[in-house]
Amino acid sequence: MNQLFTNFLPINDLDLKVGQYSVLQCGKLCTDEKSCQTFLYKPQDEKCFLYKYPLLEYTPVLSEAGVVAYEMEGCPLSGLTLNREAGLCLKILFTTNRTSFYASSVCAQLGGELISLETDQKMTFLKTYILQYYGEKKGVLVGLNSTGGWDWASGAPWVPSSLITNKINNFDSGMNPCGSDFCGVFSLSSSSAMEIFDSCCLNIPLLFVCSTSVL
């Protein structure tokens, strides 16, 4: 685990455990709870807090003196963010090469692929990650492709979720005709609302998301 000296607590999604704990006991609680990404410990009061996301630049926090934060580790490379509950690590990268082939090749060099969002948990985690990493809404290329039917890079079929607005229509006004397949773009229409639309695979967004397996 990676120790961070913070003196603050996240405002949302924080679980204060009842009782008094040592730092090792607090760490074990986090280890045993798959949704726990970070645990925060206040030695003075022996308080243990579990948090389901990593601590990022725009994580909403309040000041709390004496708190030390520890992030769980498990990614094969530095710079990747762990999602323990989904069993994957992710990284958002920037590119000026606007083709999905290039984005896929970069992910392959990291030992992974463009992220597949087959579950609501993965979608919600990515939404929170984008907001807390960038502090604003962003559109990112994900591993969804129209080749042979809409499927994720993992091979799972695209099944619309009630949590996300489906705007896939096999059309890209920015590149028409496309001359290629269409690729999925995950975006936020507000701080809480998610949507997915398609873009020509030769005209992808500037940001894309790679994922790898955990150690």
Rank of each mutant, 00 (worst) to 15 (best):
Y51M: 07
S199K: 14
G143Q: 00
D151G: 02
Y51F: 12
D198I: 07
S173C: 01
L126F: 09
Y41W: 04
L126W: 11
I92C: 06
G27K: 06
Q121D: 15
C26R: 12
G143M: 00
N176P: 01
V23G: 00
A156E: 09
L88A: 00
Q121N: 14
E71I: 03
I204D: 01
S105G: 05
K34F: 06
L40K: 05
F182R: 08
D15W: 11
G184V: 07
V214I: 15
V185I: 08
N7Q: 11
L202C: 08
V68S: 08
L80P: 05
L215Y: 02
N83Q: 06
N170W: 07
W158Y: 15
A86K: 06
E136L: 13
N97D: 13
N2T: 10
S180Y: 13
Q109H: 03
M72K: 13
F94Q: 14
N169D: 15
A103D: 04
L55D: 03
N12Q: 10
T124C: 11
G19P: 03
C48I: 01
K127D: 03
R98P: 00
P76Q: 09
A69S: 11
V61E: 06
C201E: 12
P177T: 12
Y70V: 12
K167N: 15
G111E: 01
L141P: 01
L88Q: 02
L126T: 04
A103Q: 06
Y53H: 05
D181T: 13
S78I: 07
G179H: 08
L90M: 08
S190G: 08
Q121C: 13
G184S: 14
I11T: 13
Q20K: 05
S192Y: 08
F208Y: 15
T124K: 15
F49N: 09
W150S: 01
L16W: 01
K42R: 05
N97P: 00
S35N: 14
V142T: 13
Y41L: 12
N7T: 09
D32H: 12
Q20G: 02
V61R: 10
S104Y: 07
C178P: 00
C48H: 04
Y102Q: 15
L126K: 02
P60L: 13
F94I: 03
F39W: 13
K52I: 08
F94L: 03
S100H: 00
V23P: 00
N169L: 05
I130R: 03
K91G: 12
C200S: 07
V185E: 07
T128L: 14
G79F: 07
I164F: 06
N97W: 02
V142S: 09
T212K: 05
L131V: 10
V140H: 04
E46Y: 04
M175Q: 14
F186E: 07
G87Y: 01
C75A: 09
L110N: 00
C89A: 04
T6P: 07
Y41E: 11
N7L: 11
L16Y: 08
L77N: 02
F197L: 12
N2K: 08
F197R: 13
C26Q: 02
L215G: 10
T165M: 03
G149C: 04
Y21H: 14
A153M: 07
K47F: 09
L131I: 11
I196L: 09
S100P: 00
C183W: 03
P160E: 15
C107F: 03
L4M: 09
T124V: 12
Y41H: 04
L93D: 05
G74H: 13
E73L: 04
Y134L: 04
G74N: 13
